[in-house]
Write a protein that binds this DNA or RNA. Structure first.
Length: 212
DNA sequence: AACTTCGCCAACCGCTGGGTT
DNA sequence: TAACCCAGCGGTTGGCGAAGT
């Protein structure tokens, strides 16, 4: 295997300790400097990935709970393949402000109003989803359960109502509310007409916004 | 027991967008 | 304003172990 082999040759517990030590001293970010200052063989990108997926504190390991699984499905119905936004580590992203606004757009009762999936990495969520897609496609099932479609539909309407008068949210709406997950088309193939309804409702959200 | 399939996991690659010069 | 750099993101790949045949 490409990556794993390379990594196993280069990464040991000692390297982990070096990386942890470096982040403790200098904080996250400026990953290219890690290699220069710590003497690690890995490029900055790899260091960041290693830190984010394995070394970062408060990481939650192990299988997804039922609640988390449900939340992922729900978030995917709303956001599409925005794995990093679903993960809690959005806090370290420069896009954090946008995301906070996004979170504020959702009603407090919505799971998204909390910090999404704390302790889970984008990679974990992505892997889980891809596995799930394969499983359901093989079984000939729609990707989203009907109740999730309906809930997404309801929230889509509510979101458009909340954000309607707020011009500052334009960017957020463009990036998220308008987004149509590619996966919808697979759902359509599976004759999941509820997703078509959701899609249409999102389009009407766009119309509502532009007519304001 | 040997082989195949499947799911999980970890890592790399290429692209994008924001920041800096 | 353009060019460059870099962190971050999403897609993809492939090893490994468990389960099934």
């Amino acid at each position: 295997m490409r990556g794993k082999m390379e990594c196993s040759q280069r990464i040991g517990k000692n390297c982990h300790a070096i990386l942890i030590d470096y982040v403790k001293k200098h904080g996250e970010g400026n990953w290219n400097a890690v290699q220069k200052h710590s003497g690690l063989f890995r490029c900055g990108k790899s260091c960041r990935l290693r830190w984010a997926n394995h070394l970062r504190p408060n990481l939650k390991k192990g299988a997804f709970t039922r609640e988390e699984e449900h939340l992922i499905i729900e978030l995917h119905a709303k956001m599409g393949n925005k794995w990093a936004r679903m993960a809690a580590n959005v806090k370290s992203s420069p896009k954090v402000i946008k995301i906070q606004v996004l979170v504020n757009l959702y009603p407090s009762s919505s799971p998204i109003a909390h910090i999404l999936l704390p302790g889970r990495t984008d990679n974990e969520i992505k892997n889980y989803w891809n596995t799930r897609i394969k499983r359901r496609q093989r079984a000939g099932l729609p990707l989203y359960p009907p109740e999730v479609c309906l809930q997404a539909l309801k929230e889509s309407h509510r979101t458009s109502a909340v954000s309607g008068g707020d011009k500052g949210t334009h960017d957020i709406l463009q990036n998220n509310t308008y987004e149509i997950p590619d996966v919808i088309f697979d759902s359509l193939k599976a004759k999941n007409y509820l997703m078509m309804i959701l899609l249409l409702s999102r389009m009407s959200t766009v119309d509502v916004f532009f007519t304001l």
